[in-house]
């Protein structure tokens, strides 16, 4: 008995929504007035919207708008970690630069100056600001890598060891990227913490239905415009009378009058 009650409690929503869909569909099929058909389509579609939204509901959930300070958590946490990540990237780049210097020292002493330039570039590379956007971090990494690339371009034609420099530059980029990834993970962890407090209802069905509502209204508009034109062309929007009129057009007046008589008999 208890099982049955649970079964019904879990599903009664869907059943009533299905009844609504059926009513809408029945109006479309069984009613002859074109405006009424459009109204029926509207009910049918709206009921399908209710079904979608019902899927996404989570009991004890709340509307999918952040209210537990998730955004602050994400940016704050991200900002702090970003600082560390920046340091990590700098260190990696520094190593790379050192490697580069070592290589260049073999080729040309002036390369040292270039190495210095690179370090300067690193210092000037925009350090992620506290609370700044996370997206900047990979950019910073890219800038470092680019700077190294420029640096390589300035050095005289390198021998095979030039490859090491190149890969070192790549390493700097990777390091920055990984650090950024770490920030993302950290932010996600922080979010999990924040979200244990608040449960959000699934946003995806809402998005789909926002689109579908607009599509539904567009269909209604076109359908009604057609009904207006039909009224002007035929003088009626009753399906029976329209069919009778078309019958006349197709098979001559005798058949049409018979159909009209039938339509009249129903009235």
């Amino acid at each position: 008995m208890d099982d049955w009650l649970t079964f019904i409690l879990e599903r009664y929503n869907y059943w009533i929504v299905i009844m609504l869909m059926m009513t809408g569909l029945y109006i479309v099929f069984a009613r002859g007035n074109l405006v009424k058909k459009i109204v029926g389509l509207n009910i049918f579609q709206t009921s399908v919207f209710i079904y979608y939204i019902t899927i996404g509901k989570i009991v004890d959930g709340t509307a999918p708008i952040y209210m537990g300070g998730e955004l602050e958590a994400a940016s704050h946490h991200g900002g702090k970690e970003a600082g560390g990540a920046g340091h990590g990237a700098e260190a990696a780049a520094h190593d790379a630069a050192a490697a580069g210097e070592a290589v260049h020292a073999k080729i040309d002493n002036s390369a040292l100056d270039h190495g210095q330039e690179l370090k300067d570039a690193l210092k000037h590379a925009p350090a992620p600001e506290e609370g700044g956007s996370l997206h900047e971090l990979p950019d910073a990494g890219d800038k470092i890598a680019n700077a190294m690339g420029d640096h390589l371009g300035k050095t005289p034609p390198a021998d095979a060891s030039g490859f090491d420099v190149g890969s070192a530059a790549g390493g700097a980029h990777d390091a920055a990227g990984n650090a950024a990834g770490g920030v993302g993970d950290g932010a996600a962890d922080a979010l999990h913490g924040a979200m244990d407090a608040v449960v959000y209802t699934n946003p995806l069905p809402h998005v789909l239905i926002l689109t579908a509502i607009v599509v539904g209204v567009a269909t209604t508009a076109v359908g009604l415009a057609l009904a207006v034109r039909i009224r002007e062309a035929y003088g009626t929007i009753e399906e029976d009378e329209l069919e009778a009129a078309d019958e006349i057009a197709e098979f001559g007046h005798a058949a049409g009058e018979r159909a009209q008589a039938e339509a009249g008999a129903g009235a």
């Binding site: 069984a30 007035n33 009424k36 009904a227 009224r231 129903g266």
Partner: peptide, 13 residues
């Protein structure tokens, strides 16, 4: 749409 067409639905066969 209704004002441009009809106000009343006729009974259906």
């Amino acid at each position: 749409g209704m004002l441009l067409t009809v106000r009343r639905e006729k009974p259906k066969t």
